[in-house]
Computed example of a mutant assay.
Amino acid sequence: MASTDFKDYYALLGVSKSATVEEIKKAFRKLAVKHHPDRNPGDKAAEERFKEISEAYEVLSDKEKRQKYDQFGQYWKQAGAGATGGWPQGNGGVNVGDFDFSQYGNFDEFINELLGRFSTPGGPRGGNYTYRTNTGNPGYGEGFAQQPSGGDQTANLRLSLLEAFRGVQKRLNLGNEIIDVRIPAGAKTGSKVRIKGKGSANPYNQQRGDLYLNIELEPHSFFQFEDDNLVCEVPITPDEAVLGASIEVPTPDGQVTVKVPPGIRSGQTLRLRGKGWVHPKDGRGDQLVKIVIDTPQSLTQAEREYYEKIRDIRTYNPRNHLQRISL
């Protein structure tokens, strides 16, 4: 005979048997907000409903419990706990039958503790969860990403190229705490800086995760990155390309004189060793100078006459090899 107190957990949460964990969590949150006793004072039916959906969520969000529930139906508890029946007493167990709601100051505290229990080793695989009824900015600033309670948090931090090259100290507002963080020299877009113990606190055990800063560099008008090298483009004139020249090139340390060899072509690269980006473990990298031959758009009469003379006496034809090209 089927148990008279068997509950259809899927029906309680209003989800299908094929619902994902995320869909189950979303349904639970919606119902929890509606039926929580704090929002329905004196309503015994709402309190009982809240207990039922909490029980349903605990089971269906746990991979092993859900598998037993799907397999054994009304006998899943006996299958999970042996002949004694009742709730399996793992690390993630929640006795909702005689749950004392008065120990919580508000709805958020209960939900965060409940979901925090699920993130313990006895809970489901898939990491920690958090729940907040407010949707405002958590107080960290632009780019802050709300993360699981009692787990790691991440935030994006934008730096100028100068700040990243030299290293910089930044003051960050975490909402309930102001901290100073030293960003070491040589950070690049994609670098991560770990700040231990400054992540979110688990309300169940008060342990805090870590805060990870994702570094993002502001675009620069002259310098770019190519792998680990600092890259720039420097224009030269046609006569400098033909005859060679000494030109001034900006580096992170200031201007340096670079010799351009005669006959250089547009697109060729000169390497300035040790003038590139800071590598925390390997010292300075190289700066790559890409040469671009810049043809003048306006000429004086004298310049035009000299270019015409060069054209008339020039023996070099860069298109000679094209005469041998055919299909």
Rank of each mutant, 00 (worst) to 15 (best):
M1F: 14
M1N: 10
A2S: 11
T4G: 03
T4E: 10
Y10P: 09
S16D: 15
S16G: 15
S18Y: 07
S18A: 07
K25F: 11
K26T: 04
A27K: 07
L31S: 07
A32R: 03
K34C: 02
P37S: 02
P37K: 04
R39G: 10
F50T: 00
K51W: 00
I53P: 00
Y57V: 02
V59S: 01
L60C: 02
K63T: 06
K63H: 12
E64F: 13
E64C: 08
D70F: 09
Q71E: 03
F72Q: 15
F72Y: 15
Q74T: 07
K77W: 01
K77D: 01
A79I: 00
A79G: 02
A83T: 10
G85A: 10
G85W: 01
G86D: 07
W87Q: 04
N95K: 02
F99G: 06
S102W: 00
Q103K: 14
Y104A: 06
G105W: 11
F107I: 09
F107G: 00
F107W: 04
D108I: 04
E109Q: 14
E113Q: 09
L114Y: 15
G116T: 00
P124L: 12
G126C: 06
G126D: 13
G126Y: 08
T130N: 13
T130K: 13
Y140W: 15
G141W: 09
A145W: 11
S149I: 11
G150E: 00
D152E: 04
Q153C: 13
A155R: 04
A155T: 00
N156L: 03
L157E: 04
R158M: 13
L159F: 00
L159A: 07
L161Q: 12
E163T: 00
F165A: 05
V168N: 00
K170Q: 08
L172W: 08
L174S: 14
I179D: 12
D180W: 08
R182D: 10
P184S: 01
A185R: 13
G186K: 06
G190T: 11
S191F: 08
K196R: 13
K198I: 10
S200T: 01
P203S: 02
Q206M: 14
D210E: 13
N214P: 08
I215V: 08
P219I: 07
H220Q: 10
S221K: 02
V231D: 02
V231M: 13
C232Y: 08
P235D: 07
I236S: 04
E240W: 11
E240P: 11
A241D: 11
A241M: 06
G244R: 00
S246L: 15
I247F: 08
I247L: 03
P252H: 05
P252R: 02
D253K: 12
Q255A: 10
Q255P: 05
V256P: 13
V256L: 10
T257S: 14
P262T: 00
G263Y: 09
G263L: 03
Q268D: 13
T269I: 15
T269H: 12
R273I: 05
G276E: 01
H279I: 00
K281G: 09
G283S: 04
Q287D: 12
K290R: 15
V292P: 12
Q297R: 13
Y307G: 10
E308D: 07
D312I: 05
D312R: 15
D312F: 06
R314P: 02
L322G: 06
Q323I: 04
Q323H: 10
R324Y: 14
